[in-house]
Amino acid sequence: MGRVGIGLALAAFAVALTLPQFAGPFWMGLVTQMLIFGLLALSVDLLLGQTGLFSLCHASFFAVAAYTTAILQVRYAVPTLLAAPAGLVAGTLLALGFGLAVRTRGVYFILITIALGYIVWGVLHRWSSFTGGDNGVTNVPFPAVGELRIGSHTEYYYFVLAVVIACALVYRVLIASPFGLSLRGIKASETRTRSLGYRTGLHLYAAFVLSGLLASLAGVLYVYYNRFVNPVSASFPISVEATLMAIIGGSGTIAGPFIGSGIILGLRNWVSSFFELYATVMGVVFIATVLWAPDGIVGLVNRLRAARARRKAL
């Protein structure tokens, strides 16, 4: 990260800290969602941006984690300290299974992950005696650990902010690590990494499981924010949106998925309030991104800055 990057990060942090002072409940809710879905987009981008795998089943891990936590909290009165980790474990176990999809590549990988995603959505939808069917699970309480409990949406916002910052810092180390470099090597040339001694399938599998864990974390954060969960959270459009967020914001970066999440959720809220064709608007935004900012907003900003630096140098 350059000086500008650090400056921007600090400025964003300062705004995030003081936001509840001047933003109303509606805006606070939107920003909390942006953070949570930014985390989901970041999990998708651990595969897309670092390894080149295009996964469309991340809503599955997100939803299974959310459901597990919700069902344990609501139906079995399990405390947060157990219910939240159980959600993470359930989502990650699912990723351990779905991760076998890394035996395929390219369009086959995309198709398999789409199919797996539909299975999870179908189960949540159909197995109504356990999952609550279309109604899902409602009345999820705020998280509480002993006497410490989150009592308002503002407090929960700060909690989500802290988790997201911690995740971003860990993610930063991960992608700068020898393991992270190996993933980018596989993305650039899998044949070359193999001939250098890498069991590339195993590396990709590990990345897939880590990515599933991160998506599960987003799911647990989501269910405590939303207070209920239904099969929509496992649906294909959620996986697609998370991917779009990463691409529009800037795949391969940390800020990108969060910027993309802000843009997409912001547009959805704004546009759908007066315009039926929300999906059409999203399609146009996506095409515009592919045409004019193929590296997303972060890439576009970097290109503009480089161009300005060149002009100055002349």
Binding site: V173, L174, A176, S177, P178, F179, G180, L181, S182, T193, L196, G197, Y198, H203, A206
Partner: peptide
């Protein structure tokens, strides 16, 4: 790092 174990290190930057 291709032939050793270090390609699996995740917790420290290169």
């Amino acid at each position: 790092i291709g032939t050793g174990r270090r390609k699996w290190i995740m917790h420290r930057p290169v």
